Amino acid sequence: MAKILLAEDDDNVREFVSRALLHAGHEVVQAEDGGIASEIVIAERGRFDLLLSDIKMPVMDGIALALAVAASHPDLTIVLMTGFADQRERAHGLEQLIYDVIPKPFTLSALMEKVDDALAGRPVEIVSLASQAGPN
């Protein structure tokens, strides 16, 4: 299957997502923050099929990571995750660099569908931020 770099600072989320990806047959390399993920990308010379990264992380956030990775490895598919509406807003304008942003909390099926779509290069389904935000 695919080789995926997972950058997520929350241990529980990282383990949950990693187990799901492994169960689906993917190879997963984990990083606790964007700085470590950036070092891994450099060491591996960008040889990943997908970068799946949280946006809000210490050391280097997911947006800075996406910018750095896209500059050196423009063919690497990038999917960001966040539970913060303001972080989703920050990701707008990066459409040329990232595949999509997954809002947290997410279901396992929604995550896997987005990963499969990103790996297959399927067009992103347009969903308004208002519908992602849920009830007030």
Rank of each mutant, 00 (worst) to 15 (best):
M1S: 13
K3N: 15
K3E: 07
I4F: 09
L6T: 06
L6H: 07
L6S: 04
A7D: 00
D9V: 04
D9Q: 02
D10N: 11
D10E: 13
D10C: 05
D11W: 04
N12K: 11
N12L: 09
V13Y: 01
R14E: 04
E15A: 11
F16G: 01
F16W: 07
F16T: 14
F16C: 11
V17W: 05
S18M: 09
S18R: 14
L21E: 01
L21K: 01
A24T: 03
E27P: 03
A31D: 06
A31C: 10
A31W: 10
G34C: 09
G35D: 01
S38R: 14
I40S: 06
V41R: 13
I42F: 01
E44G: 00
R45Q: 11
G46K: 02
R47D: 10
L50N: 13
L51C: 03
L52N: 01
S53R: 12
S53G: 07
D54K: 15
I55C: 12
I55Q: 12
M57S: 00
M57C: 05
P58M: 08
V59P: 00
V59I: 14
M60D: 01
M60W: 01
M60Y: 03
D61H: 02
D61I: 00
D61N: 13
G62I: 00
G62K: 15
I63P: 12
I63K: 12
I63W: 10
A64D: 14
L65M: 10
A66Y: 07
L67N: 12
A68M: 11
A70K: 10
S72A: 14
S72M: 14
P74G: 10
P74Q: 09
P74A: 07
D75F: 15
D75G: 15
L76S: 04
L76R: 03
T77D: 02
T77I: 15
I78R: 12
I78D: 09
V79F: 13
V79W: 09
L80S: 05
G83K: 01
F84T: 08
F84I: 07
A85R: 15
A85V: 07
D86N: 11
D86M: 03
D86V: 00
R90P: 02
A91Y: 03
H92A: 12
G93L: 01
G93P: 04
L94N: 05
I98V: 14
Y99M: 09
Y99Q: 09
V101E: 06
V101Q: 11
I102Q: 12
I102M: 14
I102L: 15
I102R: 07
P103I: 06
T107K: 06
L108P: 02
L108F: 03
A110I: 04
A110V: 06
M112H: 12
M112T: 04
E113G: 10
E113W: 10
K114T: 15
K114M: 14
D116Q: 11
A118R: 09
L119A: 03
A120C: 03
G121E: 01
G121P: 02
G121S: 00
R122A: 13
E125K: 13
E125G: 05
I126F: 08
S128N: 04
L129R: 11
L129G: 11
L129S: 05
L129H: 07
A130S: 02
S131E: 12
S131Y: 02
Q132M: 13
N136C: 09
